[in-house]
Design a binder for these strands. Sequence first.
DNA 1: GGCTTCTCCGACCTCCGTAGTAGGATTAGG
DNA 2: CCTAATCCTACTACGGAGGTCGGAGAAGCC
Lengths: 161, 161
Amino acid sequence: MIFTTKAEYGVRLLVELGRQDGARPVSLKAIAEAEGLPLAYLERIVALLKKAGLVESTRGAHGGYRLTRPPSEIHMDEAVIALEGAVAPMSCFVDDSQDGRVLCSHVADDGHLCATKLLWTRVQGGVHRALAQTTLSELVAFSTSAQTPIEPQRPTLQGAA
Amino acid sequence: MIFTTKAEYGVRLLVELGRQDGARPVSLKAIAEAEGLPLAYLERIVALLKKAGLVESTRGAHGGYRLTRPPSEIHMDEAVIALEGAVAPMSCFVDDSQDGRVLCSHVADDGHLCATKLLWTRVQGGVHRALAQTTLSELVAFSTSAQTPIEPQRPTLQGAA
DNA sequence: GGCTTCTCCGACCTCCGTAGTAGGATTAGG
DNA sequence: CCTAATCCTACTACGGAGGTCGGAGAAGCC
């Protein structure tokens, strides 16, 4: 169960942008060198972020990329979904949660539902919650060696088991 | 971000075993036919569950597999870890959480930490929590068309955002 | 004892997505 | 007009997912 490097590189790219003040655009080349990532590949990744409206670009000399919003308003669920596509733990997992019914593609041969659907739904909820609770500004602060706590800011009931 | 079919098939296998009373072992062939899964592939998957001590086997005629514990005592984190290996959202993600330090393989070229580590740690926590809160007995109940709520039994503070 | 029915085990295969490259077209400063 | 940058499409290599095959042990049953 892993994300791909698209998510990894894309998030690092966003952090790199978030570290800047945003006055001037930052070129991909600078980011690629700072993070040690392949430039040509980053181009494809940043295109996903642009399509999602998270960054904007300026072409030509002294051009580059800039965040469209302050880092504190960028939640990572948006970013990761833009980079990875829908976050679903299983391929048969279409998001039909809005109508309350839980169905699967291989529905019910002999009268019983696909048991894993319940599990994957909960997992997806957990992932989505973790992503949504994390903002880009937190990652920026964390990366600049500040001691951001791993646990998100919201108090949780359960003792971590 | 998906699990593989190992997790899918393995969980369905466990549910199929949990649906039985556990008095007699169930053959893989019966499970494969009931779930419509390839028998030869299931063999490899159930071996993972056996190695993890979740099922036990009886060889020979009328043999098969059986749960080693009642379904209510089988939490899905154990099962999924047995099936998928460690649940880490990124390949560079080694679990060094016990010593509190958060480090990554590509540590810090120019003085700042790997920003994504914070994010993946939270995601992993969310996944792990969702898995640990779900027991096999819940999945069994769910699959037999009972209306198990998607949200786990624990009351949660946050409104689902 | 010899079937049959199972678990077990390792080697093998195929396909597809990930990760990355190559090469260019377009846009904008200086 | 040259250079620095984004943009865009096609191409490639590699590894793992997903599955198959053939056979070797184990245990019940006649």
